[in-house]
Design a protein around this nucleic acid. Structure first.
Length: 998
RNA sequence: GCUCGAGUGGUGGAAUUGGUAGACACGCAGGACUUAAAAUCCUGUGGGCAGUAAUGUCCGUGCGGGUUCAAUUCCCGCCUCGAGUACCA
């Protein structure tokens, strides 16, 4: 019987599906284990071999844990809202739901072929109304909550209203908007309901506010900070500009400190935690207020700055405001007005990218206004400059050229005074170290150092009421509105321009149908095209827009939620995927708690993984989530890169001189293609072909040249230069030795039909290979289906693991796959010969037990350390040894099948049943390692001389050090090495090594 | 610029409480079986030098130092590559 994966794999996939082998139970006495993959966005391109890498790893862990007796939750689903389906809808008019459905079908087929042990009964899709109903519900909860700094958690907005009614807001400690006016309980009660709502909006955890946003004109939508890469949109690479818009925002800044502290409690890679720490960007310093000096007393302004170096305050020689700062217009003097306005306008026009591109250019304008130094009372010039960012701190800085490089450069550039406050030379550059100096010219700070000076200045600032110590975070509140169609609609309608939440019992608010998926002509988001998109507050349903009367029927929100909304809580939905009443029942949440192992790409470090932690903490505060952190352990899978294939199109650059003294330059591109090895030899050879080039090539080049020359009359002289243009071709046109199939390439694309392919001396056409990202446009995509069809899913799974460590990026090279395929065939032959099953019940030898138990130990350790590549090696070693030992013993082969089952489940299941079992191997207990099979009585000692290994000697392990020394020194090989010298020292580590120094 | 990670044969990679560098696999070379091919199996395979050979010997884990009986592993100083981030006050 031969190993035939195409026969056995579909059979077991069907068996698992029919028997619901991997269905997880919510009520179980077993210990739970939750292993999760980052769910995919179902794109039209389908899966390539890079996608399943993480899924295979998590599947190995899931299957292993089942063998170890855990109740395993291993679900899968789709993050199915998103831009590509919508862009496709704009181009073709096809509803994104249809595109999504088609793509999901294809994904599912591909996933099924690989034999994952997913519990598909819990599948989720973020674009399904029965899913996004709960996303909308969570949004409402955020709206109905505020962050109480005193209890350090989110609370119901009701508790805030009670405080307002009892004592006003003077003593409320909340994370809220900065422009809060103080009111008393009486004033609160006197406010109109609308006014009260407007105030509450400043406290809610999701709030509607006029904010400066990243607007992407080409995409027609705003983007969050993490959706912008290098100043352009992550999707499409379009420019992004700053724009003020009324948008929903998420008050993630309320959780900055907890998001930071929580990192200490979870088992994530250091680099990932570091990314989150940088993104949160905590810095400790002080906020300081400067008063603007003004002739009009009643109009005095204060500028608040944040600084990490309050100790350098006596070095302040000017202040800089961001051009967007609110006070700019108010403080600018009439003389400077024109210059300032021109600068502000010029800055606003520049895209984020442009601003980033020339960080070295120093620019700014004096406002004409002055502020008063809080201690020296000296006037300080107020400038604006785009090196100060509106979005960080207060959008204003106190400039200390002596201690800050940018302030130094700005002062030098504009000829502003530089005050030295350090006992250091600053004639060349600012002194930016926090230490190694003493203060001078700093009044009461003179003689102090960084630490004592900082403490002293904060004390003094507080004393005069000009400032206090402050912690600042880089983390901004996250914009939550998108001007898109294919996303969750907000459960929000507007009364008098104020947002109202729809009662949760009427959820979901379904996405309306629209004629067109583009923004409306008057610039409204796509939902502005919907004709049935108004909320009837009497009948509690969505009705035609024409019925809007603003008495009982009101307009609905036109924005939709961003891509990260649905993915910020989905792991909890898997716990109870069909619950209609709640996102998950209390019992399910209490049982499953959180994700034990989460596997996915590192590109989600600052987006998905931060938002998910934020929502989880919020839901925990409000009693809806069971734990503070959603993902206990997280590992990143590295990207699998493609190996692009190149052929080389010949072109010849001619330089021809004719009798009329004219020089003709001409480049002719030939429809001839060369293999890599020939181009390496001739590329750029001027006029001379290498002597070892084949006659055919030589003749064809010479012919081409003479044909070209013949086109000119009276040629005096000519030169030519052969060059090659690398052209990517589809990797499926190659065999395993990188040889091109010339017949097939001619059919692949029209341009190659008549082309000439020049073979090398061995009559072969070997292409060039380059490592690049795997992408359809590079023709280097390797499809997992093709691998499954040719070698089987088990081979694919093993090979992906064998490629190298999980976290590492690595190129895919199909050539190596024969190794693991051969291994599976060899494994099969331990169980079968030509006549069928060949298994004996005889007692195995010691050696066989040793091979088995070595493998049990290694594989168990490896899975626990996520070192899957080394397990595959160990399987190979084991099977090689057992083959050598002619092992066909049930007592070995039965546990071996279980050992391999997490990695190669189909063959393991087949072997298991062939051995006479009727139940699935899936929950068979994992073999237990027994040390006794590994105990040795002898050791092959390496004997080193001065650290260099010279020979080995086989000695019993129970010898004493003295006995070993005696035997080794007596050995003739030792005497030969020493050549009569006396050994100075003999180091013997029993069971390890012998080293002789001399 | 800053932060993090990584540099080992022709290739992917293995080995770290310091203890036989190159496991396992690909590729390559040779051989067996076969009319032949495929498949399968066996042998060899880091480099240099010496030797018919067995073998011996030197070099060798990015570079230069150091600690140690012993360093891919620890320490110091560099170089290169990759990832993230960037006027963060």
């Amino acid at each position: 019987m031969k190993y035939n994966p195409n026969e056995i794999e579909p059979r077991w996939q069907q068996y698992w599906a029919e028997n619901q082998t991997f269905k997880a139970e919510n009520n179980s006495d077993k210990e739970k284990y939750y292993v999760l993959d980052m769910f995919p966005y179902p794109s039209g391109a389908g899966l390539h071999v890079g996608h399943p890498l993480g899924y295979i790893a998590s599947d190995i862990v899931a299957r292993f844990k089942r063998h170890k007796g855990f109740n395993v939750l291993h679900p899968q689903g789709y993050d199915s809202f998103g831009l590509p389906a919508e862009q496709y809808a704009i181009q073709t008019g096809q509803h994104p739901a249809i595109t999504t459905e088609t793509n999901i079908k294809r994904y599912r087929e591909q996933l099924d072929k690989i034999g994952f042990s997913f519990d598909w009964s819990r599948e989720v899709r973020t674009s399904n109304p029965d899913y996004y109903k709960h996303t909308q519900w969570i949004f409402i909860q955020l709206f109905e909550s505020w962050y109480n700094v005193e209890s350090d958690k989110a609370e119901s907005i009701c508790s805030l209203i009670i405080k307002f009614e009892q004592e006003g807001n003077a003593n409320v400690k909340a994370i809220c908007d900065s422009d809060i006016e103080i009111f008393t309980a009486e004033q609160w009660k006197a406010f109109s309901p609308d006014e009260q709502q407007r105030i509450l909006l400043k406290y809610r955890l999701t709030y509607l506010a006029e904010t400066e946003v990243n607007w992407c004109p080409q995409l027609g939508t705003v983007l969050a900070n993490d959706e912008i890469v290098n100043g352009v949109s992550e999707r499409g690479g379009y420019p992004v500009i700053r724009k003020k818009m009324k948008q929903w925002s998420m008050r993630i800044s309320a959780y900055a400190e907890r998001l930071l502290q929580g990192l200490e409690t979870i088992d994530w890679t250091e680099s990932l935690k570091e990314s989150q720490r940088n993104w949160i960007g905590k810095s400790v310093g002080a906020s300081v207020r400067f008063s603007v000096i003004s002739s009009e007393v009643e109009k005095s302004h204060q500028i608040e700055v944040f600084t990490t170096r309050p100790d350098t305050i006596f070095g302040v020689s000017f202040m800089t405001l961001a051009p967007e700062h609110d006070l700019v217009a108010q403080i600018t003097t009439p003389e400077q007005k024109a210059a300032v306005e021109a600068y502000v306008e010029a800055t606003a026009k520049r895209s984020e990218r442009e601003r980033m591109a020339d960080v070295k250019t120093i620019s700014g304008v004096f406002t004409g206004a002055y502020a008063e130094h809080p201690f020296t009372k000296e006037p300080v010039q107020i400038w604006i400059g785009d090196y100060v960012l509106a979005g960080y701190g207060t959008g204003a800085v106190m400039a200390v050229p002596a201690g800050d490089e940018r302030d130094y450069a700005f002062a030098k550039h504009f000829g502003i005074e530089i005050k030295n406050i350090f006992d250091k030379d600053i004639s060349e550059a600012a002194y930016t170290e926090k230490g190694g100096f003493t203060f001078v010219n700093s009044d009461f700070l003179n003689g102090l150092d960084y630490k004592t000076g900082t403490a002293k200045i904060i004390e003094e600032l507080e004393k005069i009421g000009a400032g206090k110590s402050k912690v600042n975070y880089r983390l901004r509140d996250a914009v939550f509105s998108r001007q898109r169609y294919w996303g969750e609609p907000f459960p929000v309608y507007y009364v008098n321009g104020l947002p109202q939440m729809i009662d949760p019992k009427y959820l979901p608010i379904r996405l309306p149908e629209v004629e067109k998926y583009l923004p409306t002509e008057d610039g409204q988001p796509p939902l502005g095209n919907a004709s049935v998109w108004a909320w009837d507050t009497v009948n509690n349903q969505v009705v035609e827009n024409s019925k809007i009367d603003n008495k009982t029927i009101f307009p609905l929100e036109l924005n939709t939620m961003p891509g990260w909304a649905g993915s910020s809580w989905y792991w909890m939905r898997y716990m109870d995927a069909h619950n209609d009443a709640e996102f998950a029942s209390k019992e399910a949440l209490d049982y499953w708690q959180n994700v034990d192992l989460y596997i996915g790409g590192s590109e989600h470090a600052t987006g998905h993984l931060l938002y998910s932690r934020f929502w989880n903490k919020f839901l925990k505060d409000r009693g809806f989530a069971p734990t503070e952190e959603p993902f206990k352990k997280l590992i990143n899978q590295g990207m699998i890169l493609g190996m692009s294939a190149y052929i080389y199109r010949a072109k010849i650059e001619y330089l021809i001189k004719t009798q009329d003294n004219q020089t003709h330059r001409k480049t002719v591109i030939y429809n001839n293609y060369f293999p890599k090895n020939i181009t390496d030899r001739i590329n750029g050879n001027n006029n001379v072909l290498p002597t070892d080039i084949s006659i055919d090539v030589k003749e064809s080049v010479e012919e081409a040249v003479s044909n070209e020359i013949a086109k000119f009359e009276n040629v005096v002289s000519y030169e030519y230069l052969i060059r090659f243009d690398p052209i990517r071709i589809d990797v499926s046109l190659l065999n395993l030795s990188d040889e091109l199939d010339i017949e097939r390439i001619k059919q692949w694309r029209e341009e190659f039909k008549e082309a000439i392919f020049i073979k090398d001396d061995n009559d072969k056409f070997v292409v060039g290979r380059e490592v690049e990202k795997m992408s359809k446009s590079f023709y280097n995509v390797v499809n997992p289906d093709d691998i499954c069809n040719e070698y089987g899913a088990d081979t694919l799974r093993l090979y992906e693991m064998f490629l190298g460590p999980m976290e590492q990026a690595k190129p895919w090279n199909t050539a190596g796959i024969t190794g693991v395929f051969g291994f599976l065939k060899k494994l099969w032959r331990l169980y079968f010969d030509d006549n069928g099953l060949n298994v004996t019940n005889e007692e195995p030898t010691k050696e066989m037990y040793k091979s088995l138990h070595k493998t049990i130990k290694k594989v168990t350790d490896d899975i626990e350390n996520f070192s899957f590549n080394t397990s595959v090696s160990q399987f190979m070693i084991c099977v090689n040894e057992l083959s050598q030992q002619k092992c066909h013993h049930r007592a070995i082969l039965e546990p071996l099948a279980i050992l391999i089952s997490p990695y190669a489940p189909h063959i393991a299941e087949e072997l298991w049943h062939q051995l006479g079992h009727n139940e699935s191997i899936a929950t068979a207990p994992f073999p237990i390692f027994d040390e006794k099979h590994l105990i040795e009585s002898e050791k092959e000692y390496p004997v080193s001389f001065n650290g260099k290994m010279r020979f080995t000697i086989n000695l019993p392990l129970d010898l004493s050090v003295a006995e070993i020394e005696k035997i080794v020194l007596a050995d003739s090989r030792t005497q030969e090495q020493l050549q009569g010298r006396e050994p100075k020292k003999v180091i013997i580590v029993p069971g390890k090594i012998i080293n002789i120094v001399g």
